[in-house]
């Protein structure tokens, strides 16, 4: 039942080392190495900002109910910081077992830790980006320093945990069938547009849509990061959002344990 926890016990040092090696692997052989982790998001943000503030004029401000108006740029920077981590966690998380298949088919290895150490490697990049985002926020007239910023230490670990647990389901399934892996990738290419990364997801024209948006966990974190750095709102203030998220988290934990346990022993034979 608790195979995953057993596999992690006493393996924390190894997980840490493997995450370091995973990080090295990602940026190997590039002259500016880790700076690539910054170039891609910076360019992406620029392109979106250009399209929506310069291209489609008149939408350079984002109105947030009960908080105020925010410049599109600062609004996007905060949302995107969370988004980059989430989208990579979902797509690469689902591929993690297949990409590390040598640990499954060649040696006896606690397979569930693969999801943890690959996710940990992504967390390092995320912390680096979050630090840069914070500098931008602090010097932005609409940002500044606030006690609410400390909520980062609530949202960030929760985000790490949520998407690691999600990979307990997706990684074994993607290792088993490439169709599932492709389905995840295809799904993710659209998810961005139905999540409130560069628009406010809780400002829909229909009240029903506003409710539906609460069920997207990506909104919970993108909005949470903005609560932390822009809105100066506590995570407890939107109770419905918090409870829906926690409900989903529990569901994903149960699904993750179930999927991992039923597929663990079948994976070495199909990889």
């Amino acid at each position: 039942m608790f195979q995953i926890f057993k596999e992690h016990k006493g393996f924390s040092k190894q997980i840490f080392l493997l995450s370091k090696s995973e990080l090295k692997k990602t940026y190997k052989g590039a002259a500016i190495g880790p700076l690539w982790a910054l170039v891609k998001p910076a360019f992406t943000i620029f392109v979106y900002w250009f399209a929506f503030s310069v291209g489609i004029r008149g939408s350079s401000e984002v109105a947030v109910d009960g908080v105020g108006d925010f410049g599109r740029f600062i609004f996007m920077v905060v949302g995107f910081t969370a988004w980059f981590f989430m989208s990579e966690s979902i797509t690469l998380g689902s591929k993690s077992i297949r990409q590390n298949s040598q640990y499954v088919t060649k040696v006896a290895f606690p397979v569930s830790t693969i999801m943890t150490f690959t996710q940990l490697a992504r967390l390092y990049v995320h912390l680096f980006l979050a630090a840069i985002m914070y500098i931008i926020v602090v010097f932005n007239p609409q940002g500044g320093v606030s006690w609410y910023n400390l909520q980062f230490f609530f949202y960030c670990p929760l985000m790490f945990a949520f998407f690691t647990v999600l990979a307990w389901s997706t990684a074994p399934m993607a290792a088993f069938s490439r169709d599932f892996e492709n389905a995840v990738t295809a799904f993710m290419s659209g998810v961005f547009w139905i999540s409130g990364i560069f628009y406010n997801s809780y400002d829909m024209p229909l009240p029903l849509l506003n409710k539906i948006m609460l069920f997207n966990p990506i909104n919970f974190f993108a909005n949470g990061y903005r609560n932390t750095f822009l809105y100066n709102k506590g995570f407890w203030e939107n109770e419905t959002e918090l409870y829906i998220f926690l409900g989903e988290f529990i569901l994903i934990i149960i699904l993750g344990i179930w999927n991992y346990n039923r597929l663990r022993k079948r994976i070495p034979d199909v990889l």
């Binding site: 190894q14 493997l18 640990y103 060649k106 290895f109």
Partner: peptide, 28 residues
Amino acid sequence: LELTAGFSSEMTGRENIYLKGYILGHND
């Protein structure tokens, strides 16, 4: 059987000794 299983090609030979040890569950 699989002598080179678990090597990370970006890390040095010395680092890989430790890495392989970790993979097999040994400590520092």
